[in-house]
Write a protein that binds this DNA or RNA. Structure first.
Lengths: 112, 112
DNA sequence: CAGTATCCACAATGATACTG
DNA sequence: CAGTATCATTGTGGATACTG
């Protein structure tokens, strides 16, 4: 394969996952299936609107599966698909970098 | 101040790297130091403005070092710092996922 | 419970022109 | 060559109210 394609695949990933919440949602879904309001609780700060939009985007990308149980009131479960589970290493590496970054900046602030 | 939950470090990373171009720029800088116009060529589609802004952001985050050689005309080199090189695994994993994603979608399109 | 529907603010990005 | 400056457009996210 051409070299030019490899660079663009980073862009490709970021286009899908680059929002503020998407990868974060995925990181919670790695624990197992979750309901809508579970995710609202897990991700304090996200609005209903963004939660819906990002879940839809992940669903459209085939990374998340939405299951509706026709109880009353309805129960909806979100779960990673097999494709979605491919994000595990992505989440891990982002988490690790984020932790390091926060630690570094904490040290920087402390040193001032 | 936000809570220091593990999940939030994913958010932390994405806040810094979540733009359209930043991680892509880093991926090219992993090859070695590059000049401004090298990067413009490497990343077709990026505007001068965004290239400047994102390089500044990465510089401010301590991930990229900017070196000016006082020749005429001036030569400016951008290079990853040691901290910036910590992004290598991030880039790798994003590249890998992006490649897989493009391949999957190509197959999907072909099957239509 | 799990959403939609609106409306709005602001950030991100782009286009174009100009400069030391 | 390596940028700035300015303006316009698009995208992202938030607030609030409402619904089956």
């Amino acid at each position: 394969m051409k070299e030019s394609l490899t660079g663009c695949s980073v862009e490709e990933s970021m286009r899908l996952l680059g929002g503020r919440w998407r990868l974060l949602l995925v990181s919670y879904l790695l624990d197992g299936p979750k309901r809508f309001n579970d995710l609202r609780r897990d991700v304090p700060g996200i609005s209903q609107r963004m939660l819906t939009l990002d879940l839809r985007a992940l669903e459209d990308a085939g990374l998340v599966k939405r299951t509706v149980y026709p109880t009353s009131p309805v129960k909806v479960e979100y779960d990673l698909t097999e494709d979605g589970k491919r994000l595990h290493p992505v989440v891990d590496v982002m988490k690790e970098f984020g932790l390091w970054l926060k630690q570094r900046d904490a040290d920087k602030t402390a040193a001032r």
